[in-house]
Amino acid sequence: MREAKKKTTLPFKLSTIKLLHKWLSLLVFIQLFIWLGSGLFFNLMDHSKARGNQHRQSIVPVAIDAQRLSDINTSLSITSEPLKEVSLVQRLGHPYYLITHDKGLYRHFKSHFSLVDAYSGVIKIIDNEMAAALAKESYSGSAEISHLKKVEPPIEDFLKEKNILWQVDFDDELNTSVYINASSGRLVGHSNDDKRFADFFFMLHFMDYPLTGNASVGGFNNWQIIFFALLTVVFCLTGLIWTLELLIKGRYKIK
């Protein structure tokens, strides 16, 4: 009697809730296990290893001879492109004017730079020789370079990057790859097998699956995760209601 009374006060039928919960469990269980498993992995993984920086070292700047710097206005007149910013940077212990023609909101957004030798005032194009030297400068390991190539987005190790990069692979036990921005010479980052392993779990957790025709994008705003997330919300809420019902009916007892 008591139960029948309660049922009339609820805006939904408990039997519907239970039916929904059972069938939803069939739909979401695989992804739910992937979420829980990868979530547990993030909890347990070595966070410093997952950054891919085992063989990364910082670059020590050298002193710049102010008197040798070429006149900034002459350097700026080299290019007729728009001028947003000029910074005095160092590449391989040599000063350059890094001229920003176009800059995105963040560093990985599409940008456009020129690099001008700050002593001679000559434009510097980053060729494979310079890319190799820049990569080595940031690399603390003893391995040699095995491959070197210019890569265009999408770049598997840095999926959010929107600029052309030099990819410099080292022949070490972790398969370290060093990425250099092809127009500015800036070090974008290091990647290695540890980072790739962690990235694989992020791909699973974010359901960023390379589905028919669509590659992974390195983000979590995709339709398949939105769909499954909504199903899972309903699944968890129906489960909670069911659990509460069992609790009220006194099914949880400490013997």
Binding site: W35, F206, F220, N221, N222, I225, I226, A229, L230, T232, V233, F235, C236, L237, G239, L240, T243, L247, Y252
Partner: peptide
């Protein structure tokens, strides 16, 4: 389920917010 049920709801609701 009694102990973990609430956290399941928290995970799914917060996860859904972040992906949407």
């Amino acid at each position: 389920m009694l102990f973990i049920g609430l956290q399941f709801v928290v995970w799914s609701v917060s996860g859904a917010y972040m992906v949407i």
